[in-house]
Simulated scan of single mutants.
Amino acid sequence: MAPTIPGFDHLRLPGADGVQLTAAVGGNGSGSPVVLLHGFPQTHLMWRHVAERLADEHTVICPDLRGYGASDKPAGTGPEVYAKRTMAADVVALAAALGHDRFALVGHDRGALVAFRAGLDHPDTVTHLGILDVVPTLDMWNVLHGVSAAVGYHLYLMAQPPGLPETMIANSADAFFGSFLDAWADDPAVLPPEVRAEYLRASAAAVASIVADYRASAGVDVRHDQADLDAGSQLAMPVTVVQQDWGARLGYDAAAVWRAWAPDLDHRLTGAGHFMAEEAPEEITSAVRDLLAR
């Protein structure tokens, strides 16, 4: 049996365009809603420690993104199918199905890119925005350069036209996805065997949709970000960003990148690794609580 978040119900809920999403929902039913979006190569399970800590005060909603985990994996090849704009619409629809027309939103990795797009597209819906360990898609491509870009080799692999990336990854799924779990966790013990196995199982079953998600970030997502940048769009809500010191590693000012999008910004660096919600749940929970208090 796959591991779950204790005390949470697992529901099937409507997203956009007829897609059905699976979400773990729990916490204080009278508390303000907080939606937590997972990253790669994970599922909603990555939030298990933080979700339990927030549950005393909030209604906590942890969906699997479209294309990941137990959520639907639409097979359409159009660029909008896995655009972050579409995935953000999923989150808004899912929350509405639970009776929430306004909610706080926190995302990690791929989920953070979805959260960023939701904040721009739905400013009257997203009350607070938390971002873990990314910069916006447009900026991500701009800061990767030279040999330092090797850290993001998978971004370039999955940006290639359909066919070769899917075949290569499917033929070595456990090795491919497992390499990120090994490289990005400062302490492998934060990913117990049953959790690691669930991430690998879920990712191996979702190769085509995961590649499509990444391919969108080399195309349609860049166009959407560029249009907002050209229009002077910014995030209207309080924003907290917690990330590793990627600016020092790759030679850019991460706080300045985020401040251009988020005037009301709390930018924090962490000593934890990429899987910070699992490695440092108290720190991340504290950051979320501080965000919600603004």
Rank of each mutant, 00 (worst) to 15 (best):
L13E: 00
T125M: 08
H100E: 04
T285E: 00
A95W: 02
H122K: 13
S179L: 08
K84D: 04
G99N: 03
T59G: 05
V34K: 13
A231Q: 06
H108K: 14
F103D: 06
N142A: 15
A118F: 05
M46N: 09
Q20L: 10
G130Y: 01
D124Q: 15
D64V: 09
W141F: 11
D139I: 04
H38M: 12
E166W: 08
L36M: 06
R117S: 05
L235K: 12
G247I: 03
G29V: 02
R201I: 04
V81H: 10
H154P: 10
A104K: 14
V25T: 00
V190D: 03
Y214T: 11
L13Y: 04
M276N: 01
R196T: 00
L265D: 08
A175C: 02
A205H: 12
G219N: 10
P162M: 07
V60S: 05
D230Q: 12
A112H: 03
G29L: 11
W47N: 15
I284N: 10
D213I: 13
E80S: 14
A95N: 11
G67T: 01
A227M: 07
P165A: 07
L235V: 02
A218G: 15
V220P: 09
Q20Y: 02
T22Y: 04
P14S: 09
P193S: 06
R249G: 04
I61D: 03
D266W: 02
V114S: 12
S32C: 02
G69H: 06
P41A: 01
Y156H: 15
L155Y: 09
T137C: 09
D187G: 06
D182Y: 14
T127C: 08
R294T: 00
P79L: 00
G130Q: 09
Q42F: 01
H274P: 10
A83C: 05
H100K: 11
I5F: 01
H145D: 03
A173C: 12
I210A: 06
A293D: 09
G251I: 03
G31F: 02
P6Q: 08
W184M: 10
V151I: 13
V195I: 07
P281F: 00
D9T: 07
A262P: 10
T4E: 12
L94A: 12
A280K: 14
A115V: 03
D56T: 11
W246H: 12
Q160A: 15
H58P: 14
A206T: 11
Y156V: 15
A254L: 08
G119C: 09
Q244S: 06
D266F: 01
L129S: 03
M276G: 03
V222E: 00
S209A: 15
S209K: 13
A16N: 13
V220G: 05
G31L: 08
T86R: 15
G31Y: 01
A104I: 11
A202W: 02
A277M: 15
D290C: 13
R201T: 13
I210F: 02
V134W: 02
L65T: 04
V106S: 08
G178M: 12
D245Q: 12
P14I: 00
A149H: 12
V242T: 04
S30T: 11
A149G: 07
